[in-house]
Design a protein around this nucleic acid. Structure first.
Lengths: 341, 341
DNA sequence: CTGAAAGCGCTTACAG
DNA sequence: CTGAAAGCGCTTACAG
């Protein structure tokens, strides 16, 4: 209970001298074909105005069964922004598309868990968008089983159930990034980053492999994340293996690599070309713009909401799995391989 | 109506062979002192599990009267980001504080209007944070009269009612910005920007005036926004009046001024010092960091939510009006006045 | 310790 | 054209 007692529908009915049903009818002028006499209508409106009546949306939701709410749930803390600022670009698109379709947006921030003591917190929304690198697959399976409408942002596989997802097409982006290095004459290329357990990393790796396989005779290396964390080990790997092209899975790897190289006297892009396989945080003009794969997160958010709405409305019953294209942007951190290296 | 028929509380009651009230009691283990036999409890839990029962939150909300929802309503479109990217920094703070206090966040995106045919859309939330440069003051007055708990982000005055607000203290920021120019030896200083109708502009102007008055013998100019839009007129004003210090009300004015000066051969900060009286979009290191007043929007969002929650809980009944300090950051766009100009 | 009942505030067939 | 009633799914005194 919050603030002062508000007038209710029956207060209005009493004052207008009609029944509650009638009040409901005139107040939401629904398309019901039942006409109401002008006199009654006027009396009701007047009474509502006198009382400052305003319907209780929760009661309306309960009676109507729908509430025009799109939920957003994330498996990662939204703050602090550990994994870059990935949340808000998606939210921008979610918000825009929800607004276009006359939905409000509910941010589930109370918990990082969907099911807690028999409660399903998402149920308040007609359907939800889920995000986060590491979902609880068991929860997703249960959600699926209960036929709750949801769309995951990012490809996620759940054993024995096909869930809806909309994902960045990292594969094609990584393919083009790798091609770019190869076209510039690089022959020893390393992939550096972490989290092979996660779907997006698989896809990046797959895209790179495809380009490498097509080219033939490329020396392909992998520098796992823990090596990247030890600057000396990292530099040894780069130097000993004569790596001239670096494909970084995320911003963290990208900026760490740049800093390491700089500190140890290797110039980018003169000595080593470096690419980020995901969107970079700062958008500066060329030549300061890094060479990177550019995601379109707002667009992805919009598509996710469109997909969700078509599930909610029942238009679509097959699981939807959609890739959103990524572009490769050649910026100032890549250059032709120097002779001699 | 959305998806498949879900089991309800009475389904569970039936299966467990108890009454609905009992089910409610065991399922939300509330602090009610009424103890329940282990046997009954177990039967209910089992039945709930068998059926995959999960309570309907809307019904709970209606019965309980509270819904642990903080609303966010904005009088400006959130996208496209016409006025910089001002929304998300606030949202970050709102979201964080809501989460800390175990509230969800509801983004009202369905409409730019609170009251529409007798409906008050905010009512779904226990209380709301409002934003936007140009609110509908009549709506605010009505909200106030109905005693709906809300807090405005930014100082807003509504005739005949004291509303809660939390605002950036532009006045102190602008004061220090102006002092900075004066301390650097500038004697002809202009304020450029727009929207004198709005409270934040008043405060910026007031802060500047205070510094100018304290210093004495400063030539003080105002370049209204429409002049800024005509590069020639703008440059004439700067040159003819020998302005060497420019205080810009917003990012738009700031970047426009920089571009104009650059195009017409005046160097910043050598020839003209330029300051933004609000946070700048890009955070680059010195010397690229512009001289500017730095807002702390996430913090402001958090304080707004704290204030709102204390209203909702009834802890506080007096209108709350709080200023959040702003710091002045001396960056690379200001320098001592050159001799001779 | 448990059940029957009233209530939260609205909507929607169903009669008249 | 309007009223009386049942229902949305839950909670919470009130009896026993």
């Amino acid at each position: 209970m919050t603030f002062s007692k508000r007038p209710t529908q029956s207060d209005v009915a009493k004052r207008a001298g009609v029944s509650r049903g009638t009040v409901s009818l005139v107040l939401n002028g629904s398309d019901t074909r039942i006409p109401i006499s002008d006199d009654t209508r006027a009396r009701v409106l007047q009474a509502a105005d006198d009382l400052g009546y305003t319907p209780n949306p929760v009661a309306q939701m309960l009676a109507q069964g729908s509430n025009r709410l799109i939920g957003v749930f994330t498996y990662e803390a939204i703050f602090p922004f550990d994994r870059d600022d990935f949340f808000f670009p998606y939210l921008t698109g979610i918000q825009r598309e929800a607004s276009i379709n006359d939905y409000n947006v509910l941010l589930f921030t109370r918990s990082r868990q969907i099911y807690a003591n028999t409660m399903n917190s998402l149920l308040l929304a007609d359907g939800s968008i889920l995000l986060g690198a590491s979902p609880d697959r068991a929860e997703l399976a249960r959600l699926c089983e209960e036929r709750y409408p949801f769309v995951y942002i990012g490809r996620r596989e759940v054993p024995d159930c096909a869930i809806n997802w909309v994902a960045n097409d990292y594969k094609i982006g990584s393919y083009h990034a790798t091609r770019h290095l190869i076209d510039l004459g690089h022959t020893t290329i390393a992939f550096c980053g972490h989290g092979y357990a996660l779907e997006p990393q698989h896809e990046k790796l797959a895209g790179c492999h495809r380009a490498v396989d097509e080219a033939g005779s490329i020396e392909w290396r992998v520098i796992p994340e823990d090596i990247l964390k030890q600057p000396d080990a990292f530099m040894r790997a780069v130097r000993d293996q004569r790596i001239t092209g670096l494909l970084c899975t995320d911003n963290n790897a990208f900026y760490t690599a740049l800093a390491c190289l700089h500190e140890h006297g290797l110039r980018v892009p003169e000595d080593v070309s470096v690419i980020s396989l995901t969107s970079v945080n700062h958008s500066l003009p060329y030549p300061h713009m890094p060479s990177h794969v550019q995601l379109n997160r707002p667009n992805l958010g919009q598509v996710a909401v469109q997909t969700l709405i078509s599930c909610i409305s029942g238009e679509v019953t097959q699981p939807q799995q959609i890739y959103i294209p990524c572009a490769f942007i050649a910026g100032g951190t890549t250059a032709p391989r120097k002779e001699g290296r």
